[in-house]
């Protein structure tokens, strides 16, 4: 599957574009013929299980490693060019900064390299995340070091944020704060490329999602589209046992299980036919257990790529 841009060359270069992007380490193909197009202003989720090739893709984008085949660009330029990285904020999965540096050192150092940064915004960020900028990184807790990573990625208000598993190591409150920050920056117009292997985060933030498995793109779709594709479980508790055969033939119904209180259905796509059919019954309670999207993701993670 591809997520190439609409036909006809786009007037503006895309924040992220990859064509046939491939990276092999010896015999292992970590990223395999990846086609990606991330549009300006969107929050793009990049999902995949451990070892799927998410970090490798990001390292290719930023020019840390060379593609074995294919190309990738940031705003139409190779990540190798320093200029291409000027508009990017990068939060690595593991923050490796000299342990002797304080957050202030990092801000000053990177700010200078980037030719300036938003001082007021950075001060606010430090406040928001309750980060003491004067302590050496080596003395900080994992979560606090994570915050330094966040501040350095956001401090110059970049047009493109590349975030590799940004909330790992953050407590739920900070995760919330971080999600708010991402939404704010997105609404300001920044593009966000969010790599993760946890679904709820991506579901909460992203408008579109790519799912990667063993280096290959399994699917690219909007969250809404994925929801449509996701199977739903519907538990109907009825006054009298429902008649056999009523639901089995309806479009989208994949599985019918009768139980004491009624019937449980597994529906793919729209549940409208089920609801219409159930209208003839005396339905006392409707229960939709489980996280529908979660199930779909687990399937994508496990199944062989189409």
């Amino acid at each position: 599957m591809t997520a190439a841009a609409a036909p006809g060359a786009p007037a503006m270069p895309l924040p992220i574009e990859a064509r046939g992007l491939t990276k092999s380490f010896g015999r292992l193909t970590a990223v395999d013929s990846l086609d990606l197009a991330v549009h300006p202003g969107e929050v793009f989720g990049f999902l995949g299980p451990n070892g799927a090739g998410k970090t490798t893709t990001i390292r290719l984008l930023l020019g840390f490693i060379n593609p074995s085949a294919g190309t990738c660009t940031l705003f139409g330029r190779s990540g190798w060019e320093p200029g291409a990285r000027r508009r990017v904020g990068y939060l690595p999965a593991e923050l490796a900064i000299d342990r002797r540096y304080t957050a202030s050192d990092v801000i000053e150092f990177f700010g200078e390299l980037r030719g300036g940064y938003d001082r007021q915004f950075t001060r606010d960020l430090l406040d928001r995340f309750a980060l003491d900028p004067s302590r050496p990184l080596g003395d900080l807790s994992t979560g606090n070091r994570r915050k330094v990573g966040i501040v350095q990625a956001f401090m110059h208000r970049p047009d493109l944020l590349i975030l590799d598993e940004p909330t790992s190591g953050l407590d739920p409150l900070l995760q919330q704060e971080f999600h708010r920050l991402v939404r704010e920056e997105a609404s300001r117009g920044a593009t966000v490329f969010l790599s993760s292997h946890v679904l709820p985060e991506v579901e909460a933030l992203a408008s579109r999602v790519a799912i990667l498995r063993k280096g290959r793109l399994v699917t690219v779709a909007s969250i809404a589209e994925l929801r449509r594709r996701a199977r739903q479980r519907i538990d109907l508790f009825t006054a009298t046992p429902p008649p056999r055969g009523l639901f089995e033939t309806l479009p989208g119904v994949r599985q019918v299980t009768y139980h004491d209180g009624g019937v449980q259905l597994l529906v793919e796509g729209s549940v409208d036919p089920v609801v219409k059919a159930a209208a003839g019954l005396t339905v006392e309670r409707i229960h939709t257990p489980g996280q529908d999207l979660e199930d779909l993701f687990l399937e994508y993670y496990q199944e062989a790529a189409p």
Partner: peptide, 17 residues
């Protein structure tokens, strides 16, 4: 080797420089 180089190179600076 320490891993600290990568984040520095995420900034707009060329490796040669």
């Amino acid at each position: 080797e320490d891993g600290t180089l990568e984040l520095i190179l995420a900034n707009p600076i060329s490796r040669a420089s």
